[in-house]
Protein backbone atom coordinates (compact mmCIF):
# COMPACT_ATOMS: atom_id res chain seq x y z
CA UNK A 1 0.00 0.00 0.00
CA UNK A 2 1.51 3.26 -1.07
CA UNK A 3 1.62 5.92 1.60
CA UNK A 4 0.42 9.46 1.10
CA UNK A 5 2.65 10.61 3.88
CA UNK A 6 6.06 11.40 2.50
CA UNK A 7 8.85 10.02 4.61
CA UNK A 8 12.47 11.00 4.65
CA UNK A 9 14.60 8.88 2.42
CA UNK A 10 11.70 7.82 0.24
CA UNK A 11 13.25 8.62 -3.10
CA UNK A 12 16.23 6.38 -2.80
CA UNK A 13 14.98 3.81 -5.28
CA UNK A 14 17.45 2.42 -7.78
CA UNK A 15 17.70 4.25 -11.05
CA UNK A 16 15.25 2.25 -13.09
CA UNK A 17 14.13 4.08 -16.15
CA UNK A 18 16.81 5.79 -18.12
CA UNK A 19 15.82 5.95 -21.76
CA UNK A 20 17.86 9.07 -22.41
CA UNK A 21 21.10 7.88 -20.90
CA UNK A 22 21.35 5.25 -23.59
CA UNK A 23 21.53 7.79 -26.37
CA UNK A 24 23.40 10.99 -27.16
CA UNK A 25 20.04 12.70 -27.24
CA UNK A 26 20.65 13.95 -23.70
CA UNK A 27 21.72 17.20 -25.27
CA UNK A 28 18.22 17.82 -26.53
CA UNK A 29 15.90 20.64 -25.59
CA UNK A 30 14.23 18.44 -22.99
CA UNK A 31 17.54 17.93 -21.23
CA UNK A 32 18.31 21.62 -21.23
CA UNK A 33 14.86 22.63 -20.01
CA UNK A 34 14.74 20.10 -17.22
CA UNK A 35 18.27 20.91 -16.15
CA UNK A 36 17.16 24.53 -15.75
CA UNK A 37 14.40 23.28 -13.45
CA UNK A 38 16.91 21.30 -11.41
CA UNK A 39 19.20 24.32 -11.37
CA UNK A 40 16.36 26.43 -9.94
CA UNK A 41 15.89 23.93 -7.10
CA UNK A 42 19.57 24.00 -6.29
CA UNK A 43 19.86 27.76 -6.61
CA UNK A 44 16.87 28.27 -4.36
CA UNK A 45 18.38 26.27 -1.52
CA UNK A 46 21.82 27.84 -1.91
CA UNK A 47 20.34 31.33 -2.14
CA UNK A 48 18.21 30.82 0.93
CA UNK A 49 21.14 29.50 2.97
CA UNK A 50 23.49 32.25 1.81
CA UNK A 51 20.82 34.84 2.42
CA UNK A 52 20.22 33.60 5.95
CA UNK A 53 23.93 33.57 6.71
CA UNK A 54 24.56 36.98 5.17
CA UNK A 55 21.51 38.48 6.77
CA UNK A 56 22.22 37.12 10.26
CA UNK A 57 25.95 37.80 10.21
CA UNK A 58 25.77 41.09 12.22
CA UNK A 59 23.54 39.31 14.76
CA UNK A 60 25.94 36.38 14.99
CA UNK A 61 28.71 38.87 15.77
CA UNK A 62 26.60 40.89 18.18
CA UNK A 63 25.25 37.91 20.11
CA UNK A 64 28.13 35.48 20.12
CA UNK A 65 27.18 32.43 22.12
CA UNK A 66 24.58 34.23 24.20
CA UNK A 67 21.93 33.45 21.57
CA UNK A 68 22.11 29.88 22.90
CA UNK A 69 22.89 30.49 26.55
CA UNK A 70 21.00 33.63 27.68
CA UNK A 71 17.41 33.75 28.78
CA UNK A 72 16.83 37.47 28.27
CA UNK A 73 15.30 38.68 25.02
CA UNK A 74 15.31 42.46 24.94
CA UNK A 75 15.28 44.49 21.75
CA UNK A 76 16.69 47.44 23.68
CA UNK A 77 15.34 50.86 24.52
CA UNK A 78 13.85 52.33 21.34
CA UNK A 79 13.23 55.65 23.08
CA UNK A 80 16.64 56.10 24.69
CA UNK A 81 19.94 57.58 23.63
CA UNK A 82 23.28 55.99 22.88
CA UNK A 83 23.71 52.42 21.82
CA UNK A 84 25.01 49.06 22.93
CA UNK A 85 27.97 47.79 20.95
CA UNK A 86 29.32 44.23 20.76
CA UNK A 87 32.05 43.19 18.33
CA UNK A 88 31.57 46.37 16.36
CA UNK A 89 27.83 45.89 15.85
CA UNK A 90 25.58 48.55 17.35
CA UNK A 91 22.11 47.87 18.75
CA UNK A 92 19.81 49.99 20.88
CA UNK A 93 20.82 50.46 24.54
CA UNK A 94 20.17 47.38 26.68
CA UNK A 95 19.64 45.08 23.71
CA UNK A 96 20.22 41.42 24.52
CA UNK A 97 19.14 38.50 22.38
CA UNK A 98 19.17 35.32 24.41
CA UNK A 99 17.35 32.42 22.80
CA UNK A 100 17.72 29.82 25.54
CA UNK A 101 14.05 30.09 26.57
CA UNK A 102 12.93 29.37 23.01
CA UNK A 103 15.49 26.63 22.47
CA UNK A 104 14.47 24.89 25.68
CA UNK A 105 10.79 25.34 24.83
CA UNK A 106 11.31 23.88 21.36
CA UNK A 107 13.20 20.84 22.61
CA UNK A 108 11.04 20.21 25.69
CA UNK A 109 7.73 20.47 23.85
CA UNK A 110 8.96 18.19 21.06
CA UNK A 111 10.41 15.67 23.52
CA UNK A 112 7.29 15.63 25.66
CA UNK A 113 5.21 15.24 22.50
CA UNK A 114 7.31 12.16 21.69
CA UNK A 115 6.64 10.76 25.17
CA UNK A 116 2.92 10.94 24.40
CA UNK A 117 3.03 10.07 20.72
CA UNK A 118 5.53 7.19 20.49
CA UNK A 119 3.66 4.56 22.54
CA UNK A 120 0.38 5.65 20.98
CA UNK A 121 1.74 5.51 17.44
CA UNK A 122 3.39 2.12 18.03
CA UNK A 123 0.12 0.77 19.41
CA UNK A 124 -1.86 2.12 16.47
CA UNK A 125 0.62 0.81 13.88
CA UNK A 126 0.80 -2.65 15.47
CA UNK A 127 -2.99 -2.82 15.63
CA UNK A 128 -3.32 -1.84 11.98
CA UNK A 129 -0.76 -4.39 10.82
CA UNK A 130 -1.50 -7.36 13.11
CA UNK A 131 -5.00 -6.97 14.46
CA UNK A 132 -7.20 -5.13 12.03
CA UNK A 133 -9.39 -7.13 9.63
CA UNK A 134 -8.48 -6.43 6.00
CA UNK A 135 -11.66 -4.52 5.24
CA UNK A 136 -11.11 -2.09 8.15
CA UNK A 137 -7.52 -1.37 7.17
CA UNK A 138 -8.23 0.86 4.21
CA UNK A 139 -10.65 3.22 5.98
CA UNK A 140 -8.38 3.34 9.04
CA UNK A 141 -5.38 4.20 6.92
CA UNK A 142 -7.42 6.83 5.11
CA UNK A 143 -8.49 8.40 8.43
CA UNK A 144 -4.96 8.43 9.80
CA UNK A 145 -3.69 10.07 6.64
CA UNK A 146 -6.52 12.58 6.71
CA UNK A 147 -5.32 13.49 10.18
CA UNK A 148 -1.88 14.23 8.77
CA UNK A 149 -3.42 16.66 6.31
CA UNK A 150 -5.35 18.83 8.78
CA UNK A 151 -3.89 22.34 8.75
CA UNK A 152 -1.86 23.54 11.68
CA UNK A 153 -4.23 26.44 12.38
CA UNK A 154 -7.16 24.04 12.70
CA UNK A 155 -5.25 22.05 15.33
CA UNK A 156 -4.48 25.39 16.94
CA UNK A 157 -8.14 26.36 16.86
CA UNK A 158 -9.14 23.11 18.49
CA UNK A 159 -6.31 23.52 20.99
CA UNK A 160 -7.41 27.03 21.93
CA UNK A 161 -11.10 26.33 22.28
CA UNK A 162 -11.20 22.71 23.50
CA UNK A 163 -7.84 21.63 24.89
CA UNK A 164 -6.49 24.68 26.73
CA UNK A 165 -9.59 25.30 28.89
CA UNK A 166 -9.68 21.57 29.73
CA UNK A 167 -6.03 21.60 30.78
CA UNK A 168 -6.36 24.88 32.67
CA UNK A 169 -9.57 24.01 34.52
CA UNK A 170 -9.15 20.29 35.15
CA UNK A 171 -5.86 18.59 34.29
CA UNK A 172 -3.41 21.15 35.67
CA UNK A 173 -5.14 21.82 39.02
CA UNK A 174 -5.65 18.06 39.53
CA UNK A 175 -2.06 17.10 38.71
CA UNK A 176 -0.38 19.93 40.63
CA UNK A 177 -2.60 19.21 43.62
CA UNK A 178 -2.26 15.43 43.78
CA UNK A 179 1.12 14.79 42.15
CA UNK A 180 2.84 18.03 43.11
CA UNK A 181 5.49 16.09 45.05
CA UNK A 182 6.94 14.80 41.78
CA UNK A 183 9.53 17.24 40.40
CA UNK A 184 8.26 19.35 37.48
CA UNK A 185 4.62 18.50 38.24
CA UNK A 186 4.12 20.78 41.26
CA UNK A 187 3.73 24.53 41.53
CA UNK A 188 1.46 26.91 39.63
CA UNK A 189 -1.31 25.31 37.63
CA UNK A 190 -1.25 28.29 35.27
CA UNK A 191 -3.87 29.11 32.67
CA UNK A 192 -3.79 26.00 30.49
CA UNK A 193 -1.62 27.64 27.85
CA UNK A 194 1.81 26.09 28.15
CA UNK A 195 4.20 23.21 27.72
CA UNK A 196 1.62 20.49 28.40
CA UNK A 197 -0.98 21.80 25.92
CA UNK A 198 1.71 22.38 23.29
CA UNK A 199 3.06 18.84 23.72
CA UNK A 200 -0.42 17.31 23.41
CA UNK A 201 -1.20 19.24 20.23
CA UNK A 202 2.21 18.34 18.79
CA UNK A 203 1.76 14.69 19.73
CA UNK A 204 -1.58 14.55 17.92
CA UNK A 205 -0.11 16.32 14.90
CA UNK A 206 2.95 14.09 14.47
CA UNK A 207 1.27 10.82 15.39
CA UNK A 208 -0.15 10.14 11.90
CA UNK A 209 3.30 10.60 10.31
CA UNK A 210 4.79 8.19 12.80
CA UNK A 211 1.99 5.65 12.37
CA UNK A 212 2.35 5.72 8.58
CA UNK A 213 6.12 5.24 8.71
CA UNK A 214 6.10 2.50 11.35
CA UNK A 215 3.27 0.74 9.52
CA UNK A 216 5.22 0.78 6.25
CA UNK A 217 8.35 -0.47 8.02
CA UNK A 218 6.37 -3.31 9.61
CA UNK A 219 4.69 -4.22 6.32
CA UNK A 220 8.06 -4.25 4.54
CA UNK A 221 9.22 -6.92 6.99
CA UNK A 222 8.86 -10.52 5.74
CA UNK A 223 5.79 -12.11 7.31
CA UNK A 224 7.91 -15.21 7.98
CA UNK A 225 9.61 -13.58 10.98
CA UNK A 226 6.30 -13.23 12.75
CA UNK A 227 4.99 -16.59 11.61
CA UNK A 228 8.15 -18.48 12.53
CA UNK A 229 8.04 -17.06 16.02
CA UNK A 230 4.38 -18.01 16.35
CA UNK A 231 5.16 -21.52 15.11
CA UNK A 232 7.73 -21.84 17.89
CA UNK A 233 4.90 -21.37 20.37
CA UNK A 234 5.16 -17.73 21.36
CA UNK A 235 2.09 -15.62 21.88
CA UNK A 236 1.37 -13.04 19.20
CA UNK A 237 2.65 -10.31 21.52
CA UNK A 238 5.91 -12.19 22.13
CA UNK A 239 6.29 -12.69 18.40
CA UNK A 240 5.96 -8.95 17.92
CA UNK A 241 8.20 -7.83 20.79
CA UNK A 242 10.86 -10.54 20.54
CA UNK A 243 11.04 -11.21 16.81
CA UNK A 244 9.53 -8.39 14.74
CA UNK A 245 10.33 -5.21 16.67
CA UNK A 246 14.05 -5.93 17.22
CA UNK A 247 14.49 -6.42 13.48
CA UNK A 248 12.90 -3.06 12.67
CA UNK A 249 14.45 -1.11 15.51
CA UNK A 250 16.38 1.34 13.33
CA UNK A 251 13.35 1.95 11.14
CA UNK A 252 11.28 2.85 14.16
CA UNK A 253 14.00 5.12 15.50
CA UNK A 254 14.00 6.77 12.07
CA UNK A 255 10.23 7.22 12.20
CA UNK A 256 10.47 8.77 15.65
CA UNK A 257 13.18 11.15 14.49
CA UNK A 258 11.16 12.23 11.44
CA UNK A 259 8.24 13.00 13.74
CA UNK A 260 10.57 14.75 16.18
CA UNK A 261 11.88 16.92 13.34
CA UNK A 262 8.32 17.89 12.43
CA UNK A 263 7.49 18.73 16.03
CA UNK A 264 10.55 20.99 16.28
CA UNK A 265 9.52 23.12 13.32
CA UNK A 266 5.77 23.26 13.91
CA UNK A 267 4.60 26.86 14.13
CA UNK A 268 0.99 27.96 14.17
CA UNK A 269 -0.62 25.37 16.44
CA UNK A 270 2.12 25.78 19.05
CA UNK A 271 1.92 29.55 18.79
CA UNK A 272 -1.79 29.36 19.59
CA UNK A 273 -1.51 27.20 22.73
CA UNK A 274 2.01 27.57 24.18
CA UNK A 275 1.44 30.76 26.18
CA UNK A 276 4.11 32.95 24.55
CA UNK A 277 6.52 32.87 27.51
CA UNK A 278 9.41 35.28 27.38
CA UNK A 279 12.47 35.72 29.60
CA UNK A 280 11.64 32.75 31.79
CA UNK A 281 12.35 29.04 31.66
CA UNK A 282 9.46 26.67 32.35
CA UNK A 283 9.05 25.97 36.09
CA UNK A 284 6.81 22.95 35.60
CA UNK A 285 5.00 20.97 32.95
CA UNK A 286 2.14 23.51 32.84
CA UNK A 287 4.31 26.64 32.56
CA UNK A 288 3.91 28.87 29.52
CA UNK A 289 6.69 28.26 27.01
CA UNK A 290 7.73 29.54 23.62
CA UNK A 291 9.36 27.79 20.70
CA UNK A 292 11.74 29.13 18.09
CA UNK A 293 9.24 28.79 15.25
CA UNK A 294 6.50 30.44 17.32
CA UNK A 295 8.71 33.26 18.51
CA UNK A 296 9.75 34.09 14.95
CA UNK A 297 6.09 34.67 14.07
CA UNK A 298 5.09 36.44 17.27
CA UNK A 299 8.21 38.58 17.74
CA UNK A 300 8.90 39.55 14.15
CA UNK A 301 6.39 42.36 14.48
CA UNK A 302 8.24 43.76 17.50
CA UNK A 303 11.65 43.07 16.07
CA UNK A 304 11.06 45.08 12.92
CA UNK A 305 10.50 48.16 15.07
CA UNK A 306 14.14 47.97 16.23
CA UNK A 307 15.80 50.89 14.47
CA UNK A 308 19.22 49.23 14.58
CA UNK A 309 17.91 46.12 12.79
CA UNK A 310 19.79 43.74 15.09
CA UNK A 311 16.55 42.37 16.62
CA UNK A 312 15.29 41.29 13.20
CA UNK A 313 18.59 39.68 12.37
CA UNK A 314 18.73 37.92 15.73
CA UNK A 315 15.32 36.47 15.05
CA UNK A 316 16.63 35.23 11.71
CA UNK A 317 19.60 33.79 13.59
CA UNK A 318 17.14 31.84 15.76
CA UNK A 319 15.50 30.59 12.58
CA UNK A 320 18.93 29.49 11.40
CA UNK A 321 19.48 27.61 14.67
CA UNK A 322 16.15 25.84 14.18
CA UNK A 323 17.10 25.08 10.60
CA UNK A 324 20.41 23.51 11.68
CA UNK A 325 18.72 21.42 14.39
CA UNK A 326 15.99 20.12 12.09
CA UNK A 327 18.54 19.41 9.36
CA UNK A 328 20.60 17.37 11.83
CA UNK A 329 17.56 15.45 13.05
CA UNK A 330 16.37 14.77 9.51
CA UNK A 331 19.81 13.59 8.44
CA UNK A 332 20.08 11.15 11.32
CA UNK A 333 16.56 9.94 10.56
CA UNK A 334 17.43 9.36 6.92
CA UNK A 335 20.56 7.43 7.82
CA UNK A 336 18.54 5.30 10.24
CA UNK A 337 15.82 4.55 7.70
CA UNK A 338 18.31 3.81 4.97
CA UNK A 339 20.14 1.48 7.36
CA UNK A 340 16.83 -0.27 7.89
CA UNK A 341 16.22 -0.54 4.13
CA UNK A 342 19.64 -2.07 3.64
CA UNK A 343 19.28 -4.57 6.48
CA UNK A 344 16.77 -6.68 4.59
Amino acid sequence: MASLTPTVGGSRARRAAVPFSQSPASGTLAGVLTSIAAGICLLLVVLMLLFLLWYTWPAIRYNGLSILSDITWNIGNQYGTGSSIHNGVAAEPGAEFGGLVFLVGTLLSALLAMVFAVPLALGVALTIVYRLPERLRLPTNALIELMAGIPSVVYGLWGTIVLVPWVGNHVAPFVTHHFGFIPFLGGDAGSGNGLFAAAIVLAIMVMPIMVATVRDVLLAQPKSIYEASMALGSTSWQAVTHAVLPSVRTGIVGAILVAFGRALGETMAVLMVAGNAINILPQNIFSPINTIAAVVVSQLESAVSDASGVAQRSLAELALVLFVISLAVNTIARVAIRGQDRSH
Partner: peptide, 19 residues
Protein backbone atom coordinates in the same frame (compact mmCIF):
# COMPACT_ATOMS: atom_id res chain seq x y z
CA UNK B 1 12.22 47.13 31.76
CA UNK B 2 11.60 50.81 30.94
CA UNK B 3 9.09 51.69 28.25
CA UNK B 4 8.63 50.89 24.58
CA UNK B 5 6.24 49.27 22.15
CA UNK B 6 8.01 46.01 22.90
CA UNK B 7 9.78 45.64 26.22
CA UNK B 8 11.70 42.87 27.91
CA UNK B 9 9.11 41.56 30.35
CA UNK B 10 10.39 40.52 33.79
CA UNK B 11 10.36 36.80 34.55
CA UNK B 12 7.01 35.89 36.04
CA UNK B 13 6.32 32.14 35.98
CA UNK B 14 2.60 32.48 35.28
CA UNK B 15 2.78 35.41 32.84
CA UNK B 16 0.96 34.84 29.56
CA UNK B 17 1.41 36.64 26.26
CA UNK B 18 -1.48 37.61 23.99
CA UNK B 19 -1.69 39.06 20.51
Amino acid sequence: PGYGTSISWPSVPTAVGAN
